[in-house]
């Protein structure tokens, strides 16, 4: 679905990772030999991972990120009209984590609050929903939170996922801005829904225990890595090319292509297919991992932390579980982007 939302922008954003960082060698110790680990690192580009402490949920990363934005005094709590929490690792099956976040963030009662169940494409979807909601509001702003603790879903010996996923959360404030446009291209490939899936635990198959054990493969995430690579190469470049055409933009005028940090070779492959200079396609997740819905805001906060320029006309693209792709062309020229913070237990450093 190609569409444009007018008079909206991301005003500010912040991302938070865990202070607990585990190297790929440590994670894959006793599972595969050091030569294969070295080959994996070359392909994925991940050296170490942000891993949430046991008591930390995705929502905790997001609360910290939101509090940092409120502390920056760019946004007041009473300006928030809606809270959208994008995650696949909610605190509970019910209620919506967004409802608990309204209370935790001391937001007023007269706001809308709901969860969006999406992964790697989730930040862009959240942006689409938030910017669309603004069209019907006379004033106010929308707080978009996104995050995942995907590492909790990994089976202890699943080397494919252990070599990829990390945990993080982010917060962004979406506000009205006269004359600004955000162009979107949203796509869904439900026929590939079993490519990344947790088969048990929800209502289609609640049964978790087998032979008195919970250690059942289907209780954890299954990822068909080759199919993910194939999907990313086959559909994402076309999604982006169609969006650029729809936005009547040109690759040369877009300052940065912020692609979901699935892994380094996927990001490089997409850039090569679109003939985008690699300098415009940052990979900034080497010491964080693939953080699902938080990965796009994390590129920006990492660039900020590294004193790199972030105020460009940019293309953002999230793709993965669903399978789902969501891309947007958005002007970040006046974005307030704060550097990545670390969460130590329940506190940030």
């Amino acid at each position: 679905m190609l569409t444009v939302v007018e008079n909206a922008k991301i005003e500010s954003l912040c991302a938070v990772v865990s202070s607990k960082n585990i190297t790929v060698e440590k994670r894959l110790e006793n599972l595969i030999d050091s030569k294969k680990i070295s080959r994996l690192k070359k392909i994925t580009g991940f050296d170490s991972f942000s891993v949430a402490e046991e008591e930390i949920c995705a929502s905790d990363f997001c609360v910290r990120a939101a509090e940092i934005l409120f502390d920056s005094e760019q946004v007041r709590r009473d300006e928030i009209r809606a809270l959208i929490f994008v995650t696949q690792t909610a605190d509970y099956f019910m209620p919506s984590t967004a409802c608990t976040l309204q209370k935790r963030l001391n937001l007023p009662n007269d706001i809308a609050a709901f969860d969006l169940s999406l992964g790697c494409s989730g930040f862009v979807y959240g942006l689409y929903v938030a910017s669309s909601m603004l069209q019907n509001l006379t004033d106010g702003k929308i707080l978009l939170l996104c995050g995942d603790t995907s590492t909790r879903n990994i089976c202890h010996d699943d080397t494919s996922c252990l070599s990829i996923f990390g945990d993080a959360g982010a917060a962004a404030v979406i506000s009205k801005s006269a004359g600004k446009k955000i162009f979107f291209n949203l796509q869904t490939f439900g026929e590939l829904s079993e490519t990344i899936i947790i088969r048990r635990g929800a209502y289609r198959n609640q049964h978790l225990v087998e032979n008195n054990s919970l250690d059942v493969r289907e209780n954890f995430v299954f990822m068909n890595g080759l199919e993910v690579v194939n999907f990313s190469s086959k559909y994402v470049p076309q999604n982006i090319a169609d969006l650029i055409h729809f936005a009547k933009a040109d690759i040369s005028e877009i300052g940065a292509f912020l692609l979901h940090q699935a892994n380094k070779s996927i990001v490089e492959s997409i850039a090569a297919k679109l003939q985008i200079p690699s300098a415009k396609v940052p990979f900034r997740a080497s010491n964080i991992g693939n953080t699902s819905s938080a990965s796009i805001p994390l590129i920006l906060s990492e660039m900020k932390r590294l004193n790199e320029q972030t105020n460009f006309l940019s293309l953002i693209s999230g793709f993965g579980v669903g399978m789902s792709i969501a891309s947007a062309v958005i002007d970040f020229s006046d974005l307030l982007c704060l550097p990545t913070e670390k969460l130590v237990g329940g506190k940030n450093s």
Partner: peptide, 11 residues
């Protein structure tokens, strides 16, 4: 020749 090599060759 495993999934890692397949991905490398695919890229």
């Amino acid at each position: 020749w495993d999934s890692v090599s397949m991905v490398a060759f695919f890229s």
